[in-house]
Design a protein around this nucleic acid. Structure first.
Length: 417
RNA sequence: GGCGGCAUGGCCAAGUGGUAAGGCAACGGUUUGCAAAACCGUCAUCCCCGGUUCGAAUCCGGGUGCCGCCUCCA
């Protein structure tokens, strides 16, 4: 059985084939560290976490990189969101960023998300970004306007291939939205590469003046540094898809040049679906954004939040609320209860190394792995285990030690114990 | 307009080619001083049309309906 993944690039369910045998390199769009990280973002990090765990359990060696954006993420007024948040708190941008990063990792651990191999911070990779921008400039794809450097988007004809639109359609959408941004651009879809700003708290010298890098170039530069020009999987939340991932691809395509037949950046692109809260879309404007920290502080166990955020296939919309938490709580209780119940018996058990596993273990294991291989259907995988455990009777468990070993093995992916 | 998802009894919902799980509700009954609870029982051919097949809720084509996203926000 091989892993199948729904690739946002092309939209088909594809057999996963790594670039190098038994090795997977993947990049995940991480948080902008201006505020507590909410459940929508963490849902996409959980997708990355479970994907990594499943790949490793399937025998792959995984290299996982997630960026942390601490500079260059602008709001609709063209203000740096980290700097704005720091200003409100009466401090400096880098101080706020460092603190939020620390809290992000605390939240992350509470949800049982394993640490990526690298968490590159944007502000520590400006040199690489400048180098990336230089290469784009050498390709003749940039221009300066109003002191800022932009990428001419018309250099990438396939813009929209991820979200299934044409450049013209994207331009139309763009027209109806933002007002201030892009006033100086020749084309509203042109990408910010470098912004000059003498007053920006975090600024660097560059061939284009003192300032800071554009948001979209950051991921390109950092993924190139740690994963190379072409890697296996790129994930993010679905709102990263347009424009962020489209823009990443555009830059990568220009860098690769016309001779490169490979897809820009990654072979597979995965996107997690949106999260609603008690039936209402979670958004700034609805005022119902739920930070994970808030949930943890209210006493909800991290593992329950984890499972609640896994309680729907990753591409489906997830409604987070009482129902999801109850469902998750029940699943966690069944699994922990089973472990606690058996751990006493297992220690007293005389090991029988030659004994074959009970039938329910092999059946459950097959269904568990099959669910994960089918486009990482982790909720189905969890359900398979929970159903199996809750339907066992004392005399059908078989060897307690073997049952615990099996549960431990499944938990390499679930991360609940 | 584009992209994606979903359509199974009153409601929720399992089910990925072989006579449609389960839960809630409802209805009938047993028990009970009445009621509740508990227990027993009853309750669907799977949105429509066409195709593939010995056989489809399950596969393919077309249609209809609903939802999400495409804007801050992930």
């Amino acid at each position: 059985m091989t892993l199948k993944l729904k690739n946002s690039l092309g939209g088909a369910l594809e057999d996963f084939l790594s670039l190098e045998p038994r090795k997977v390199r993947m990049y995940h769009c991480g948080p902008t560290v201006n505020q507590p990280i909410h459940i929508g973002k963490f849902r996409s990090y959980l997708l990355a976490d479970v994907l990594r765990r499943h790949l490793e359990r399937s025998g792959y060696e995984v290299l996982q990189v997630m960026n942390l954006t601490d500079v260059g993420h602008l709001n609709e007024f063209e203000e740096d969101v980290v700097e704005i948040a720091a200003g409100r708190a009466g401090g400096y941008a880098w101080e706020l960023a460092e603190n939020e990063m620390r809290l992000f990792h605390a939240d992350r651990r509470a949800l049982g998300i394993r640490g990526a191999h690298e968490y590159p911070k944007a502000r520590e990779h400006v040199e690489e970004m400048i180098e990336t921008i230089r290469l784009l400039e050498e390709a003749g794809a940039t221009y300066v306007e109003g002191g800022n450097l932009y990428l001419d988007i018309t250099r990438y004809e396939k813009l929209g291939c991820l979200c299934g639109s044409t450049p013209a359609e994207l331009a139309e959408l763009q027209d109806g939205s933002k007002t201030t941004e892009g006033a100086q651009k020749r084309n509203p879809l042109d990408i910010d590469l470098w912004r000059t700003d003498e007053l920006h708290q975090m600024r660097w010298e560059s061939p284009w003046g003192s300032g800071f890098p554009g948001w979209h170039v950051e991921c390109v530069a950092m993924s190139r540094k740690y994963l190379g020009e072409h890697f296996d999987i790129h994930t993010g939340a679905d709102d990263n898809l347009n424009p962020h991932h489209e823009f990443e691809m555009a830059q990568a395509a220009v860098l690769a040049g016309e001779g490169d037949e490979r897809e820009p950046l990654a072979h597979y692109w995965l996107h997690s679906g949106s999260v609603s809260v008690e039936g209402q879309a979670m958004s700034k404007s609805n005022g119902n954004i739920v930070p994970v920290r808030e949930l943890l502080e209210s006493g909800i166990r991290g593992r329950v939040v984890r499972v609640a955020l896994l309680s729907e296939h990753y591409r489906d919309n997830l409604d987070f609320g009482e129902a999801a938490l109850d469902k998750a709580s029940e699943a966690v209780n069944v699994i922990l209860g089973f472990r606690d119940h058996l751990s006493g018996q297992a220690s007293a058990e005389t090991r029988d190394p030659g004994g074959s596993a009970a039938g329910w273990i092999t059946d459950t294991d097959a269904a568990f792995t099959a669910a994960l291989d089918e486009d990482l259907d982790y909720w189905k995988a969890i359900s398979v285990v929970v159903k199996a455990l809750s339907s066992l009777e004392a005399d059908t468990v078989g060897s307690p030690a073997q049952a615990l070993d099996a549960l431990g093995d499944w938990d390499r992916v679930l991360g609940i114990l």
